[in-house]
Design a protein around this nucleic acid. Structure first.
Lengths: 234, 234
DNA sequence: GGGCACAATATTGTATACAAAGATGACGCC
DNA sequence: GGCGTCATCTTTGTATACAATATTGTGCCC
């Protein structure tokens, strides 16, 4: 069984604060180590991270604001389980924002930016080669965030970051296609366009990449990771 | 002097929770009763609302995530003071998102939606007639939020809500023009276009409305509401 | 034997106590 | 007299204790 137990606490000497805890949980969700719907008990997490519930609550509230976690009053926090409608909205929002960020990024990217993107892709490949699906997925999302940041619109970049995070949950629930190779190819050509400062091409590539991702989702069905009850009944 | 002291605590019998406190503070910021840079001391707010610092801290953290409040570690929370760059980004983001929401809203608006928008405008007029600039400003922003919600994209509507809130701070800092009449007119024609389901027109009107707002800002200067020190020196 | 009511338990919500960090003011030194 | 340093004080950060609510298990009644 995977769950909070599998999260390794950071090895820093100082006890982690809410930001570190939040980042760690966020990463675990990104990498699909925490499945949608998983209960995030406060005492449990407090034990794991070696801090008081105060820290944990702060971290959970932060994640809840980013809609990675749902908090039900008096019932606790759970890894969010986006509905098909929400999933659709997230991808529609991405299709609205990200082509624009790709465009701007292509115009503004410095050689250092491009180098960072390429280094990122290398790590992505390594993770895939290692068959580390979780890490590959995380890195794949972070590339989109990085492009948004290069675009120099930190406000929109923040939005994109939120959307990417939620996309990870959506992939966990609604992904129907196994091969992720196409993605890697899409990222390559995208970076090439950015490197060549071909904004129009970058924008077009981003559009088709997102459409491709979007079409790899099966939003008709109920979530694969069903409620425990439903899971048993199904 | 204006400040937290002027906030009337809600009269409900039950003590307010963090959501209520956050909403109240948010409203106070929207209405310019709390100026950018104002210190939001935890004990002070706890006294005002009659709750413990726990509640206040939760509320402040929520507001900080929406960038209405800045929290500096070990220094406390302050009403945010967007820089000119941030202000520009907020309006660029609005110019990217809101025309789209106006377009969708025009296509989807039900008669009830339109009625609600008109009722909203009436309240806006009343507030202006009463010379209640704060309330008028709040309502003016909320109209944009309402349009985004009618568009049926709750994800994007959330983004717009954030941007509107920050816009209120930006107006407090960078507004150079006194007359707000044009706004009212813009809102009128926008609603008419939505009522007529003329999506293209609604989109265009939103663009020009935002450009108009944007151009009414003076982003070259440093914030009007200066740091206390600067204020004295200037 | 099934279902409802109630009690016991576990978990979250809130308040408070204590610790740590920054801000302020006084004192002494240059 | 100005400036730096140290001590005091205020304010925030964290942990813990207590209260309130939801959940679960038990027993009774039908």
């Amino acid at each position: 069984m995977h769950g909070p137990q599998t999260i390794e606490r950071s090895r820093s000497i100082k006890p982690p604060n809410s930001e570190l805890v939040g980042a760690d949980l966020s990463r675990a969700i990104h990498e699909h180590r925490l499945a949608p719907g998983t209960k995030l008990g406060e005492d449990e997490l407090a034990d794991i991270y070696g801090v008081s519930r105060t820290i944990i609550r702060t971290a959970l509230q932060r994640l809840a604001h980013g809609q990675l976690v749902e908090i039900h009053r008096n019932r606790g926090a759970f890894v969010a389980k986006p509905t098909p409608k929400e999933a659709l909205e997230v991808f529609e929002a991405r299709e609205l924002l990200e082509p624009r960020t790709a465009h701007s990024a292509a115009l503004r990217a410095t050689p250092e930016d491009v180098a960072a993107l390429k280094a990122h892709i290398v790590k992505e490949h390594e993770a895939m080669a290692r068959n580390d699906r979780g890490l590959a997925l995380y890195l794949s999302g972070q590339l989109h965030v990085q492009i948004a940041k290069i675009a120099g619109q930190s406000t929109i970049a923040d939005f994109v970051e939120t959307l990417i995070a939620r996309s990870s949950l959506i992939v966990a629930l609604y992904w129907k296609r196994e091969s992720a190779l196409c993605e890697s190819h899409a990222h390559h050509s995208l970076i090439s366009a950015i490197e060549a400062h071909d904004a129009t091409l970058a924008e077009e590539l981003m559009v088709s990449h997102l459409v491709d991702l979007h079409s790899a989702l099966d939003l008709r069905d109920v979530p694969k990771v069903a409620t425990s009850l439903k899971d048993i009944l199904g």
